[in-house]
Design a binder for these strands. Sequence first.
DNA 1: CTGAAAGCGCTTACAG
DNA 2: CTGAAAGCGCTTACAG
Lengths: 370, 370
Amino acid sequence: MDARPTSGATPTIYDVARRAGVSIASVSRVLNGRDNPRPATRDRVLKAISELGFVPDGAARALSSRLKQVVGVVFRRVYGTDDGGMFEDESESLLFGDQINRGIEIVAQRRGYDLLVSSVNIDEHTLPNRIMTIAGKCDGLILHDQVLSPAGIASIARTVPVVTLAGAEGGPVANVRGDSATSMREMARHLVQDHGYRRLAYIAGHADSPDNIVRGRSFASEVHALGGECLTGPAWQGDYSAGSGVQIVRGLIALGATLPRAIACANDQTALGVIYALAEHGLDVPGDVAVTGFDDLPFARHLRPQLTTVRQPIQEIGAKAFEVLHSMISADAPQDSDAVQDFVLPTRLIRRESCGCPPDSRPAVWRQIS
Amino acid sequence: MDARPTSGATPTIYDVARRAGVSIASVSRVLNGRDNPRPATRDRVLKAISELGFVPDGAARALSSRLKQVVGVVFRRVYGTDDGGMFEDESESLLFGDQINRGIEIVAQRRGYDLLVSSVNIDEHTLPNRIMTIAGKCDGLILHDQVLSPAGIASIARTVPVVTLAGAEGGPVANVRGDSATSMREMARHLVQDHGYRRLAYIAGHADSPDNIVRGRSFASEVHALGGECLTGPAWQGDYSAGSGVQIVRGLIALGATLPRAIACANDQTALGVIYALAEHGLDVPGDVAVTGFDDLPFARHLRPQLTTVRQPIQEIGAKAFEVLHSMISADAPQDSDAVQDFVLPTRLIRRESCGCPPDSRPAVWRQIS
DNA sequence: CTGAAAGCGCTTACAG
DNA sequence: CTGAAAGCGCTTACAG
């Protein structure tokens, strides 16, 4: 029996214990669903808990059990310089990340974990500090692409289990990504062999994004292997945003360049911008120029023409990342640096209209209702 | 000076202190950016921190400072029965919630808070327990619409600061929402007066959603006031999903009912489904039937015809919810039950094509790139 | 089955 | 400016 006085503020386990006439150990036991407290004891405790409106403190629980049951998810803030542009319409560009997070959340929940989400601006000078604060609140970290340098990742991974998303093969920590190589090669074959295009281009995403690098290389080399031509270089350097797709096409047209017959984009966002800019100049997609994306975000099938793209199992990527992280947390041992794994999930080419394939017969406004 | 032995596992503040030759109090001070440790001391501490890869434990920090710097955000899981349907394409239906969360996150971050996001299934029998666990990990809770009964909300709010989103005026806790009444009245006027429609309908969202109730009432009463007819009732009961919009229109057509000249939907999702189902039967929007939405999600302008809808300041709603919650957390006092506030943010009618207004001249694939 | 007590890793008055 | 010590609210061996 404990003698502490009833606190005036939010009730603690001591208040519950006193009210139920038991020790805090017993309260803790019923809280954790152990089966030793006998029914009568348990009922008294449960009654006291609900009467007091007691909510066990997660911090205390975490401190003493050495488990927070929280995983941190860090992603890159896209626009959002502090003031003024605070509420730019960034929603489109974050769909991918949101879906990944949803996949993480769903499986995390089954294991009793919640998600601590946090966006960071790669430019902030206090980045290491922010990441450290976040890490301190979690049992492990999942890092989206482009939030931290490989060195920074390696550093934080000394102390906290870390899994990266869409990182490079052979990076410092476990990594989960979609298979970009296979499907971009397939895309190249579809465009060159099935449609007969000879002059193509690849609009790149962030130059330092591993996914982008793989996509560009796979596409270009397959096009070349099939005897086609693939334009690349600075003129085709985008940044995964729709805006970059617009700018590139406008720039090319302004220069009087002859556009390629087909443009493969690093992702769906970019393709959206490209189609917009082509339409702006009266060019038909796919009649004049075929355009393809990557990701298969929901809006891809709302576009006209519907976008030919590569479907990534987005939520599964998130789910896998959690599972990998969870096993690291449970193992509790620091990661064997020679056992760092790269998990690659299968992707699939989705042929719709923007590549030149014929439209299907359902109404074009929306095609998958159930 | 402390005498504890160096732990073999992850370093603690004691390890840092010993290595730097100072007390843990000094380490804590530099960790928290106080200005008393003199530069020389500070440097030694910083050096020890980085050498050890020390990350301060958030749980310990929270326990002793009585502040977790975490806000919980709970939203409703839409589909997702455990197996099988696990990865349904629910992404469309969660856009609204994701944008709200983004708004919360952006302002929360400025105050050093991170977001703990958690989806719940209203059907789970352990819901009270889950909410309790989540609450224990946060300083306060933001509850999306439809996650907990008013009684459940009142109960949890006894112990933790709570703000609801899109809840009812006069609910048990502070609430933040968009102004549905004004803009739905304006929508009614636009449809009846500007376009001359006389026979209209409102497709409802969840019957117990406060926003839905206000939208339906405002629309119907304004239509009536202007001498129009507004169909309602069970045949027009949806659930905010695109699928419900499809089912309702299909059902009506199957029964041979004469469709109204205009259909106002409870949200954009529903409108998407309605437009799809109308197209399916060869009906033209807005030529045969005008259709409108609510929310102005990004896809609204990708549709054809582009969707006339009501723009809610989605991110601002999230931001406001955080600010309100933050002031409650800082005040630290339990909320005055007579001071419960209802914050209503302005909305705006966005006239595009689906109501019958003429299209603008930009390419229809996408209209706002920058 | 139940309780007393130690300990989780920090922060923060309180002294000096 | 710096340190010793108490305390935050739990969990969990260890006894009984």
